[in-house]
Design a protein around this nucleic acid. Structure first.
Lengths: 210, 210
DNA sequence: GTCTATATACGGATAGAC
DNA sequence: GTCTATCCGTATATAGAC
């Protein structure tokens, strides 16, 4: 019995161990700074096995990148396309879901954003990001609210920027903010918990302002 | 006469050319992904000269990193410590200054944030970031406004997170947002110009909400 | 499938001529 | 100060035994 992170009673396949290790190391250090040796070590396997299963560092990275992006946005897609929930309720759920997710995996945002910058086209083509937003129930609700005068700023992109900025930015700037506030992970995470409740209130107030 | 970016009538020293090139390349690709050869090429000089002037890639990087951080925060320091301006006016100036700055140099935020993550301690020790905020006139004004009931959320870190999130995040997520909104640099920059005016309004509204 | 050993390429850095 | 040529460590990837 080895000491894996995910003990589900059964052994995890070598392929899965490598992927899991790759996820951890890529997320933490980014593509350029990670060495295949780091991944092999993290996975507790031989370096040659990495190439045996995944051909190359590049191929392995593409898989991790895609899965990370997909995982991140599929959740948002589900929330934003819920026919039954109000706009405000969607904001609450996005804030709550993402704050929980990112507290668990704090490296994801900066990993995604910096790797997207490094390869803008390659990565965005594969995912229906635009449709996710522009064809969503959320988008229709936003438009209705604008038409009804309940939201002053008509451009939904500002809405998205504000919402994601309030949720994601604190994590992206985590080390800086911890230094500024002289707090550690515990205090920081508590602040993020506060934000679950505050962000919907703030967004509501912002959107009514002009 | 060579074709430099900064034609001030006089030749730029080789050392300065290398630093300028290093700034561009490091900002664009980050430490790990840049090769000293890239910098030499960008500078139009021989690779050996880089080591002649700066000993190593690492030393050169440290210089660029420090100057970038310092340049970024010194401006904020000036604004936040202005005795004469109101809290609201400070928000306006920070938003306006940084949106202009980042439009000119869009790679800076993600460069700073990802490199800070990679070397948290090394970089934060050198700069008086904490004092910049916690000892600032801004901080005192914020506290007064809280005591007077004009601001509901008492923690100044939330204020900083919100302000920087609204300003910086759109740039950090630029490629993603452009894809979502199906816009290009021109349209994106226009949105950022809009935000110069809107962010102070939004911040004002948020801070009064509870 | 998994290992050891090794081929091959690349990138940082230096030696030494000019 | 600036160049060419080159050294050398490191990282990816593969060959081949088990």
């Amino acid at each position: 019995m080895e000491k894996n992170k995910k003990e589900k009673g059964l052994d995890v396949s070598t392929e899965e161990k490598i992927k899991e290790a790759a996820r951890v190391v890529f997320h933490k250090k980014g593509y350029a700074a990670t060495r295949t040796r780091d991944i092999a070590e993290e996975a507790g396997i031989n370096l040659a096995l990495l190439n045996y299963y995944f051909r190359s560092k590049e191929k392995l990275f593409e898989i991790i990148m895609f899965e990370t992006l997909f995982g991140f946005f599929q959740n948002m897609g589900l929330v934003l396309n819920d026919e039954k929930s109000t706009l405000q309720h969607k904001v609450e759920r996005v804030a709550s879901n993402y704050i929980d997710l990112i507290i668990k995996e704090p490296d994801i945002p900066i990993f995604m954003l910096s790797e997207i910058r490094n390869r803008p086209d390659v990565l965005l083509v594969k995912l229906p990001i635009r449709q996710l937003i522009m064809n969503s129930v959320f988008f229709q609700q936003h438009r209705k609210a604008v038409d009804a005068g309940k939201i002053k700023e008509p451009d939904p992109l500002h809405f998205i920027m504000n919402l994601l900025g309030l949720i994601v930015f604190p994590f992206v700037a985590g080390p800086l903010l911890k230094e500024m506030g002289n707090i550690r992970d515990e205090g920081f995470n508590q602040l993020m918990q506060d934000r679950k409740k505050m962000i919907p209130v703030w967004i509501e107030a912002m959107m009514k302002a002009r």
